[in-house]
Design a protein around this nucleic acid. Structure first.
Length: 272
DNA sequence: CTGTTAACCTGAGTGC
DNA sequence: TGCACTCAGGTTAACA
């Protein structure tokens, strides 16, 4: 579920409950996530106050007192919920934080592609963070940046913009949507796109992501308390999951292909 | 260095 | 009901 807008929605949802709270207790029910959870993770976070909550790419960064921090990544199926301690655990509640305010923050992740990682160094130096590319909504992300990074890169543009070493946070749904908006064929080699079209692509990525954030993401509108209510952006999808139906611009049938093992939908007329 | 593929997991949905 | 199969929002390691 989580691409950048979903992670941002999660952050905003849990922030009021987590910020400036001390972690009273931490319970790890399942260590085997994407990375094995540090055996001493609970004692490392215990009695530490959460001073700041940030996002870097799709990682949530919990900054603690004394310059320490930990990371949570939601993977494909992860979510974070705030609830009363008395509420029964669900099957895939893997890590539970009891806060000073006596509420629970629970990390739930059926597929266990997510991660909960203690960070022993400065966050920016951490191996999972160090080599990440620019933030798509930041100042450094623009057509010129994409164009320069794409020199001598023959890989398909869709793979290129989904590469977190280039730009973070662009997952499969929004890559499909942005390429449609920019009128670029997903398989076009990255080094065969003009500066002008790269600028259109950078703009499209920013527009799509901002729109999705404003709508609370595509999935799970309310990450904090709830039920799996769809984010309203799902109603605005133009191509993702719509192979075989007609293009809203030209009416021809949207096509499907597999690119980098990910489903790809595009309009063969509008996208070249 | 670049590019591609397999792998990590569970659950929902489909067809027989 | 049950079984076999496909697919799903991510990322890295290991290869050529």
């Amino acid at each position: 579920m989580p691409e950048l807008p979903e992670v941002e929605t999660t952050l905003k949802g849990i922030e009021p409950y987590v910020l400036n709270q001390t972690i009273k207790y931490c319970l790890v029910k399942q260590r085997q996530l994407r990375w094995l959870v540090d055996a001493h993770f609970p004692q490392k976070v215990q009695d530490r106050k959460v001073c700041a909550l940030k996002r870097r790419g799709k990682y949530l960064v919990f900054a603690l007192e004394h310059g320490r921090s930990f990371l949570i990544h939601l993977g494909m199926s992860g979510s974070l919920r705030v609830c009363e301690p008395g509420l029964g655990y669900r099957k895939h509640d893997h890590v539970i934080f009891t806060l000073n305010s006596n509420v629970h923050l629970r990390f739930h992740d059926p597929r266990r592609f997510g991660s909960v990682v203690w960070c022993d160094c400065a966050v920016d130096e951490h191996p999972l963070i160090r080599s990440l590319g620019v933030e798509p909504l930041g100042q450094e992300f623009h057509g010129e940046y994409l164009y320069q990074r794409a020199r001598r890169r023959t890989t398909a543009i869709k793979n290129f913009i989904m590469n977190a070493r280039v730009v973070v946070g662009v997952g499969n749904i929004y890559a499909n949507e942005a390429l449609f908006m920019a009128g670029i064929h997903p398989k076009r080699p990255a080094n065969r796109i003009s500066l002008l079209r790269m600028s259109q692509l950078a703009n499209a990525i920013q527009i799509i992501l901002k729109e999705a954030i404003a709508e609370g993401g595509t999935t799970l509108k309310d990450f904090v308390n709830s039920k799996n209510e769809p984010g309203y952006f799902s109603q605005k999808l133009r191509v993702y999951g719509k192979a075989g139906s007609s293009c809203q611009e030209c009416g021809s049938l949207l096509k499907f292909l597999c690119l980098g093992q990910r489903s790809t939908v595009y309009c063969a007329v509008c996208q070249t």
